[in-house]
Write a protein that binds this DNA or RNA. Sequence first.
DNA 1: CTGTTAGCGCATTCAC
DNA 2: GTGAATGCGCTAACAG
Lengths: 348, 348
Amino acid sequence: MIKRSAPPTLSEVAREAGVGTTTVSRVINGGARVSPKTLARVRRVIEQLGYMPNQAARVLKGDRTKTIGLIIPSIADPFFSSCAEAAQAVARANDSLLIVTASHNDPHTEIENLNILISHRVDGLILAPANSQSQALRDLLNRLSVPVVAIDRPVSNSSIASVVTDNFKGAKTATQHLIDHGYKRIVCLTGESTLFTIQERIRGYRAAVEAAGLPYSLNTAIKDYKSAEYAIESMLAGAHPPDALFTLKNSTTTYAFEVLQKLNVAVPKSVALLGFDDFELASAVRPSISVVQQPVEEIGRVAAELLFDQLLGRRNAGLPTRSKRTRHVLLETHLIQRSSCGCTPSVA
Amino acid sequence: MIKRSAPPTLSEVAREAGVGTTTVSRVINGGARVSPKTLARVRRVIEQLGYMPNQAARVLKGDRTKTIGLIIPSIADPFFSSCAEAAQAVARANDSLLIVTASHNDPHTEIENLNILISHRVDGLILAPANSQSQALRDLLNRLSVPVVAIDRPVSNSSIASVVTDNFKGAKTATQHLIDHGYKRIVCLTGESTLFTIQERIRGYRAAVEAAGLPYSLNTAIKDYKSAEYAIESMLAGAHPPDALFTLKNSTTTYAFEVLQKLNVAVPKSVALLGFDDFELASAVRPSISVVQQPVEEIGRVAAELLFDQLLGRRNAGLPTRSKRTRHVLLETHLIQRSSCGCTPSVA
DNA sequence: CTGTTAGCGCATTCAC
DNA sequence: GTGAATGCGCTAACAG
């Protein structure tokens, strides 16, 4: 076992096998038009030397890099890591490598990641924009020579393809569901209210309560257990305590749930709970928590498929045609009726 | 806004700015030894053209790629995605890009990923071996010219650095904790019993019960809710029903928890529950679930730090010195005493 | 301070 | 079937 400092090169293989570099190149790329004898010999040398083609050199030749980039807020976030997993599956199916980076929802880090990926000459890009409105991002994306697909949040005022959940409709339907249950004082709780998705959900909530002539009550200051506890405790002690809570994001939902438990509030009897975004144990807790479910894997999968559509279309078209049909995919949510909203699900 | 098909190159920038390529190169790399005047001019052209250096060309020059690879079973798995996040932070701090791929615990896919990363000439590699025993993996890893760090599971019979949790000790301590509570029939439940980590935990469980002269009862067939339900239900109906359950992995723990709830078994009164590996809502459910917590982020962080240590050491040493001190880091677990084991935690 | 030049490893003409 | 030569974009000698 020889541990060299530098990996073997194609020409070393060629020399060792006593053939030209072209032949080795052919062998690597399928072995067409090479005599069985030399094929075998070259393959043996490759095996022996542990030769692996240098991706950088191939890329430099101007071909595609067979690499696509994905920029998400966080790798550790279940929502986005599921997207990533799905996108990676599609990438692999298209013989490509997916490079995932985290922006932490910071526009600066996002641009940084973008530049890194551009330097790596990714063939295409999927990203969840930290800020849907950012002019800088829009500019950078527009001058890019590769196709881009936005996920979870669109890039506003741009023709960039996107795959997002119908947050408005999902929130409106969910709120309506609470209204149908007969709740009169539905309070909406959330954090990170600057995010596009959250704003859409707020719009949906508002549309529903206003249409029903019910009070609109929104608290966007829930950032941790403490703030949730404070908010809920004071509301409950107030003159017009809520009879239902609509939480717009995962963490808020669990905070609210924990607070209600801590306070020994009967759910849904005294206060109902409905959350946006499903999570692992929502069905395991007591009462099980009703949620608006997003098609997480689908987002990643569809985004990647859209990207490769553009990639393939582009190659077939010959010229880098401006995509004729920029597509915006709006994915439906699904209301999962468990116990916390007042429903009695068939499956415990 | 001109959308070119091919990204601008360094020499285009040079031509446009009326300087030599070297000057542009200098500007890109910090701008040392360039007159302020030209510096400004070149920078303007770069900005204007939206030039970004081609990573592939740099790599081809033989320098480091400033890229490290990470192979984990799944991106969507909270445990590993947290590791990945931590490793990425370290990578960024070292001005490097982390490329994450998923092996799905399949040795074949693992080798495939490995080859892809080798082709990309990563400077180093972190991986959670699908099979700790695999000879093929060991061979491949050994002939690699870059440093490797194994996480979660070691590569047995090899000098490859590793960062793993002390699964044996963690499981033994946990079992002992149950014994101290007075439980006499502690049953161990799990799936994926071929994994190194699970085997270590089984060893720990066994060591503890045998030392205490208690019966050893292991079921490694828990793969979904159904199998958990079947297993637990039959045990409970048997002659010697367990008074405590020790579950060796996350999913098993939640399955067990759900089954116990479904069956209306009082926890921990009738049957106690203790799980290996912490998870998001373990403290939010009722009763809150006691667990053996692993230092997840630390695994990723330490592994990456170890890798960069080797990388830097290697560069300073000049020659590719065989690492004198191959390091094996064993990380301690932490027993989180919540309610399900019979403890009364101070924090509800 | 600045420009010229030579390759890095590979795929790809184009000859033989 | 096969090989020699060219150039992808960049950096690092070396001149000036």
